[in-house]
Write a protein that binds this DNA or RNA. Structure first.
Lengths: 342, 342
DNA sequence: TATTGTGTTGTTCACGGTCACACGTCTGAG
DNA sequence: CTCAGACGTGTGACCGTGAACAACACAATA
């Protein structure tokens, strides 16, 4: 079953530029020029061609176009863990921004612990002939694998620190984590634990480092963070077992782990925020309805997507861009944080 | 910046099949035959060609291939609301299943209230020359727009009911909703409310109808369901305002709304499951850590993805498939449901 | 009037594969 | 010994587009 074509019958293939040319009584080149908005076309000719195009509901083949121009107008995205909110949101934003610029996106998903598949991803995207490569939410190990490849393609990685070999763009993770921890300090907390993401992930590392820096700056004690895998399951386990000591607050590397943590706390009778304040990171759409609603850090993925595409297309076209820009996240205050009890 | 190529220098373009042929001292056709696993090639020749291929790290251009064969090995996916867990999960599964079969996926995202963009999506995917079309998580209105188009492409829609014009595949929504409601009835609940999804969505409609049918079958009273937009915000609002009456249970059309509902209930002092039992739908990875952990219906998206691709590729190749198969969901029992108080 | 542009259109070829067909070599059967 | 058929390989056309160049008409200029 398929939605049947009316304009150009059934078994008939899509009309080509030559079919349009015949119908309009011109050469295929004239049609091509009309399609590409070439200036020197007589108005009457252009009109005839346009008429033929719409009558035959012709669309030009981006395949043939890509072959002729050596440009596919497609960028490849390698996405780590696209089931997660962050990576998925970035991918969507990148896709939207790319479309605005006339580019399509081919996504290649890599699951947890499948770093090796990055090889396959790069190969496939190259075979597809993408014009550029965008790597979303990577870990150091993924990037190492990527570096071993020689693609010759303009490549952008979504990470905070500049890189010698590739372009980068990112939300300012450190600023976000700093805002979160300073908020806790400002409330009067003096012992602030940290549930970290896998240190192999750039974002996790940045958040952890910022947490540490804030505590140092404030002269507060630093306890070794526990390390989770971003999942609410991991957070739950910590919530059940974590030795709180005299701590009155926890900065968690993402919302999902914060949710699990609060679940574990609840089972132990630890109340949030009465006994312990909790801050997350990501601002999942659901975070405001957790019990209690979660204080967290929101990232503007739409802007990030635009930034990524802007940089990448500039690289593809060999254009210089302005100074590097990091996108500022925003702290969302909700009721999972409060001043510690006296 | 880009990852630099070592094998074939810098400004040099990718090697073509002719370059490989020269290096191996054969004609381009022989190389093509080796690539395609043609049987009648002398072993020694094949080896020479393979050597040349790996030395030049040649990959064949799927662009040129598509032009010559009139097959892109790419299927287009139009995804409604890909930020949501369900649609996103299906897309990922479809992508993975497609890759297993040698196909790539081009996704076109349509946001909430952007049904009109489906036009643009179909056009773009057709221009890209996809071999088939897959529509994920659609609403009736989206489908109407789609029907007006005449693509001539094999098309599959992820929805439960068979369709005259298009192929379909789906999880058995009715079975899932039925399992959920029967579970509540089995616990002894006699008045079961329903928070529905937008009735324009096929899945929402099916869940609502199954809920109604179960109640009718059991001879229980049916209250008009309230209708949300899938978001936890909507659920929250219902939780704050919903007139419970003598109801002791709520069947919610998805987990996010269930989360919001429980949040609203909590603010009103309505306890789950003591005062009211709540069942969701989707089994988000986080649902087991909601407070209380949510009883919900899990869908096997990986299997769905395989089914979708299996059907779609069969349609592309003009092959008949076996009888229609719906994927059975699974009820996950957690602590948001309990017997009503006596 | 001859010349030089300038605007408009057409012709040819390249892009990197696949397909249909032709051709030579070798083997085995009549 | 000859000829058919299988095997292995090469030649040329074609897919739909764009780039480079040619060609032609007509206006402006020397």
């Amino acid at each position: 079953m398929s939605i049947e074509a009316e304009p150009h019958g059934n078994g008939a293939r899509r009309p080509s530029i030559y079919d349009v040319a015949d119908r309009a009584g011109v050469s295929h080149m004239t049609v091509s020029r009309v399609l590409n908005g070439h200036p020197n076309i007589r108005a009457s000719t252009r009109e005839r061609v346009m008429k033929a195009i719409s009558e035959m509901s012709y669309t030009r083949s981006s395949i043939a176009r890509a072959l002729a121009t050596n440009r596919t107008m497609r960028i490849g995205a390698i996405v780590d863990n696209p089931a997660q909110f962050g990576p998925n949101s970035i991918l969507r934003a990148v896709e939207a921004a790319a479309r605005e610029s006339g580019y399509a996106v081919s996504a290649f998903s890599v699951g947890d612990g499948e770093e090796r598949k990055i090889d396959a991803g790069v190969m496939e995207l190259m075979t597809q002939g993408v014009d550029g490569l965008c790597v979303i939410a990577p870990r150091a190990s993924s990037l190492d694998i990527l570096r071993q490849h020689s693609t010759g393609l303009p490549t952008l990685v979504v990470k905070e620190e500049p890189d010698a070999q590739m372009h980068t763009a990112s939300v300012d993770q450190r600023a976000g984590a700093t805002a979160a921890v300073r908020h806790l300090i400002g409330l009067g907390h003096r012992s602030i634990l940290h549930v970290a993401g896998p240190p192999d992930w750039f974002d996790a590392k940045a958040r952890t480092e910022a947490w540490r820096a804030c505590l140092e700056e404030a002269g507060l004690p630093i306890t070794e963070p526990v390390i989770g895998d971003w999942s609410s399951d991991a957070g739950y386990q910590f919530g059940q077992t974590l030795d709180i000591g005299d701590a009155t607050a926890v900065f968690v590397a993402n919302d999902q782990m914060a949710l699990g943590l609060m679940h574990g706390f609840a089972e132990r009778g630890i109340r949030v925020p009465d006994d312990v304040s909790v801050v997350g990171f990501d601002d999942l759409p659901d975070a405001r309805h957790y019990l209690p609603p979660l204080t967290t850090v929101r990232q503007d993925f739409v802007r990030l997507g635009r930034l990524v595409i802007g940089e990448l297309l500039a690289a593809i076209d060999g254009v210089e861009t302005g100074p590097r820009e990091l996108i500022s996240p925003e702290l969302k205050l909700r009721s999972s944080t409060a001043a510690p009890r006296a």
